[in-house]
Every structure is written in structure tokens, then in C-alpha cells.
Amino acid sequence: MAEKVVGIIAEWNPFHRGHEDMVHSVRKAYGDPFIMAVMSGSFVQRGEPALFDSWTRARWAVEGGVDAVFSLPVLCVLQSADRFGSYGVRLLASMGAEILAFGTESLSEEDLWDAASFSLTPSHKKAFHEALGGGLSYARASYEAMKSHSPFLAEELSKPNNLLGFRYAETILQNHFPMDIHVVHRNMDCNISATTARKELLHGEKTNLLPPKGAEEAAELIKSGCHTDFSRYEDACLLASRMVSESELSETGLFSEGLEHKWFREIGNEGYETMLSRIKSKRYLYSRLKRIGAQLLLSGRGPSPFSAPPLPSYARLLALRRSKSHFLNLIPIPVITSMARALKKADANTRLSLEMEIRASDIRSWCQHSPAYRKGRQEFYHSPLIVNY
């Protein structure tokens, strides 16, 4: 029987023991499938640079059991969780993934298909718009619409991983992708957090949350200053916002309901965190504001490509298990292994996406803690990392 092709959408900032357990669970479930992942690169979805570089994080994942890791373009990464997930599903589908694997707090495959199927019906649409018309927020209207179908599902979809899995299933159904889903239930009694791992590393603490080899290497990278200095990044975001006029903010397409005017009023604050805290509200959450700041830093003046990014049309390889390299020949879309060669052949949309990748990498390099690691144009000097087993 031919090996199954399983896809994973990831951030791995950094790859920890919980991720490793999930990968091993998927491998066991499908009898040693080809596991490929699309991973956020220089920036992560929450609106800031990753702690470590893309290639190192991808290699840790391959050493932890993944067969190949590809970059999810930054234009797709710096989006709401819904859109981030949708772009990831679409890219994996175009690469030939047959199964999408992910973790949830509680919901099963059947639950997620049920919720996703109902969300695409006229009944759901009617209930949702009635709730919105009654003055409810988007999230509450979604809850009430799903509750009309299943109170249990409505309640469980308030949990972040359940909700993301629901969006994955919804994208698959909307686009009629020939893709199944595989759920790995997270151990909520022993929930390993990448956020906690980052904090422990940045505080110089020994962490047991990463696989031993990754933990040792991560500690060395922190010690040497080869990691993101978030204070440098915040200063860059504040400066970028001050370089754009109020009318130019409006032209970017990144703002709605007059938010750009409030943004402009607050750019004189002494720090980026203070600026965001004064803009933040129940309607404009901190995560959304951080993404806007990152989008402005990357795209600057004029209409921003982040407001309506093109669908991914290529697969950019970051790391690969050598014994599974033959699978690359089965991927239907172009596989990029050299930035320089790709730019020479790129159409307009691909060029735009790749140029944003270069810019994101340059900004992340500039934000490194040690000056020794701030050299730019790293996208032209890195080849995919090959793991020899």
C-alpha cells in the first residue's frame, strides 16, 4: 500500500515535546506515512518575529519526526487565525496532502465535520446574521448560530484548538478538497506550552519542555545572542508607524472603522507597548494590533499586500529527511530550494510573496540580540537543511 501523505500546519516557536508526541502519534496511526508541514517562517501569526530562525526550527522538527518542512509565506502568516489556517490548508492541499493532522482539546473528527457542515448551511447563515443584527459581537453571534444546531458544539468551539480545527474542516469542505482530518487530543493535564518554553529560555533557565538535543542547542543560541531581541523589534515597529502619515495609513487597507486615526494619534508614545495598550479595546484585540504593526513594518506606504494576499502557488523547502527526498518529486506545485533561482522565474504574485519573505528575514536578522547575527539577505545564503536519517 502506498504511503499516506499527512500534512501539518505549524509555528513550532520552538518545536517542543508536545509537538514531538503528536508527530509520533500520527506516524503510528498511519503506518509510517510521509509527514510534511507548512510552518510560519521569520514571523509568527501573533505578529512578531520567531525567537529562532526558520531553518533551525524546521530542522528541529525533522529531527523530531517530521519528514519535510516548508515555509508558509509571511503574507499568509500575518493574518487572523481563521485566515492563517485557511491558507495553510490550501497550501497543503495544493501539495497533495491527503490527511490534515492537528490537535484539539476535546472534539473528534466527527464533531468537527458536523460543525463545519452546519456552518455552510443557509440555516447557520440566517441564525448568524440575525445574531449580528441583534447587536452581538462576531464571536458571540457565531456561538449563538452554532448553538441553534448543537449547544455542545457551540460550547466546545470556544476552546482555541477546537475552533482552529473547525476552521480547517470548514476550509476543506468549502473548497471540496480530497482531504481527511486526523485529530490528536491534547493532554490538558500536562499541556506543554511554547510560550512557557520561550520564557524559560529567555530567562536563562534550563527547560525540560524541548527534546534534549533541541533544548541544549536552544540554550546555546540564547547564550550567544542568536535570537530575537523583542525590544529592538518594538522600536522598529514604533519608528515604522511614525514614518507613515495619517492619510497613508488609510491607504494601506489594513485598518477599518477609523482605527487608523486612533493609531496615528498614539504614535507619539514613548514605547510601542504603551502605544498598543492605548489603542487596544474589546473590539481591537492586542493580537490584531500586533499584526497590523508587523504588516506596516513589512509593507510600509501604499496599499498593503497583507490586506488581500495571493494564494500560495509554490512550496519553499526549509528542511528534509534525506530518506524521504523522493517525495518531493510527487508535489504538484513548484518546490523552491534556491531564492535566487526562484526570483528569476517568478510571476508577479510569486515575486511579491518572495520579496516579502526576504524583507521579513532581514527585519528578523536586524532584531537579533547580538550584532554578530544581524547580517541581512540570509534568504540567499541558506539552502534547505538535510537530515541524514
Rank of each mutant, 00 (worst) to 15 (best):
G214N: 14
L221I: 03
L201C: 07
S250W: 09
T252H: 07
L209M: 10
T207W: 05
Y286V: 01
N191V: 11
R283N: 12
E251H: 13
Y233M: 08
A215M: 07
S231G: 05
E260R: 05
S245K: 08
A236N: 10
A240G: 03
T252L: 03
A197P: 07
W263P: 04
E248S: 14
L210S: 03
C237I: 02
L259N: 06
Y272Q: 02
L238R: 01
E217C: 01
G225R: 08
E217R: 10
E260V: 02
M243S: 14
D180E: 15
K206S: 14
K262P: 00
V184F: 12
S231K: 11
A219I: 02
E248H: 05
E251P: 00
R265P: 01
D229F: 03
I279N: 06
Y272R: 02
A236G: 07
F255Q: 07
N191C: 11
D189A: 15
E251D: 15
R198S: 04
W263T: 03
A240R: 06
R242Y: 04
A194D: 08
E251V: 01
S247K: 14
N269H: 13
R186V: 06
S247V: 12
R198V: 06
E205N: 13
S247H: 10
F230H: 11
I192E: 07
D235I: 02
K206Y: 02
N191I: 12
T207M: 06
K213S: 08
H261Q: 13
S231V: 06
M243P: 00
L249W: 08
L285C: 12
L239N: 12
M243C: 13
S193Q: 10
I192M: 13
H227K: 03
G214T: 15
G225K: 05
N269T: 07
T252V: 09
E220V: 11
T252M: 11
G214C: 12
E220R: 15
A197N: 05
V184M: 09
K282Q: 12
N269Q: 14
F264I: 00
S245L: 07
L238F: 00
T207P: 06
A194T: 04
I267T: 14
E220W: 02
H261D: 09
G268D: 03
S247R: 14
